[in-house]
Design a protein around this nucleic acid. Structure first.
Ligand SMILES: [Mn+2]
Ligand SMILES: [Mn+2]
Ligand SMILES: [Zn+2]
Ligand SMILES: [Zn+2]
Lengths: 140, 140
DNA sequence: AAGGTTTTTAGAACCATTCTAAAAAAGAAA
DNA sequence: TTTCTTTTTTAGAATGGTTCTAAAAACCTT
């Protein structure tokens, strides 16, 4: 998918088709807000506020529904760094995070920026699903 | 602190003294439940249920109060791996975790079992507070 | 346009956690 | 021990992010 600019209408159509989701006003608006050049980390409520500010009429329930649908389609992933709050991430490549605790900001760390040379033995009967590295930061 | 057995009454006294907490029945009961030979990972509600089962009369509010006090005293740390739920950990050494997603179980990974040879550049004006590695597992 | 299906929505429900404020316990002073 | 002050415990209310419910709106096919 092209990602070096705002998506065109036909690119949004394609995105929703690929995700096997019907083309609705709300899904198109959210797709357009989310899938631009830069990756983003955000919560459902932040996105809701942003959509309303942009003049879109969309309920919080639809934000949640759509985010989960995008996630099932592999367009978003979740990041858990704080109790009682879920971040969504447009970067679906395996990667890691800085978390600036002072203001709740997440920053990407490319996978190759953290070189892990030794791994512990995995418990029997288990497979690795994912490995998260979270580097928690405080501002000086 | 001795940790290769159940704590004696005087060891619990010492633990509460060090934490600058008054010696109450509830705090002593919880300390005795928590600080044994093996480290534990648990939620507040799990601990509440366990305390009631052991015949102790203690409210959930006191469980939360005490866990936070123990944490401030450096006797416990929190682990965040799932939305809407906080795990407490009696292992306060820097270390990492396996998280078995199927049954919500946390397992310790010693710090030296994960060798990290390259770290990304830390954003300006920030210091590392902590680094968490969570290896998410699924049962075969 | 009609009919059947999916989506959106407002508001209720949920649930782990925190808060409130009153009763109980602890400690100090006498 | 009695009294006084401070801290702790507690039941239950409140909170807040998320999910659920079920009815209205939008969508798609015929
Ligand atoms: Mn939020
Ligand atoms: Mn719990
Ligand atoms: Zn990211
Ligand atoms: Zn641990």
């Amino acid at each position: 998918m092209v990602r070096n600019m705002v998506l065109t209408t036909s690119e949004i159509d394609k995105l929703l088709d690929n995700a096997k989701l019907r083309h609705t006003k709300q899904r198109a608006q959210l797709a357009k807000m989310l899938f631009k050049a830069e990756n983003r980390h955000f919560t459902a409520e932040q996105l809701h506020k942003e959509a309303r500010t942009a003049g879109h009429t969309i309920s919080l329930a639809t934000i949640y529904n759509t985010l989960h649908q995008f996630r099932s389609a592999g367009l978003l992933r979740q990041v858990i760094v704080e109790p009682g709050k879920v971040y969504f991430d447009t970067n679906t490549e395996p990667h890691h995070h800085f978390y600036i605790e002072d203001d709740g900001e997440l920053l990407d760390v490319e996978r190759n920026e953290v070189k892990i040379s030794t791994l512990p033995e995995i418990p029997k009967n288990c497979n690795i699903r994912e490995m998260d590295v979270i580097i928690r930061l405080r501002k000086k």
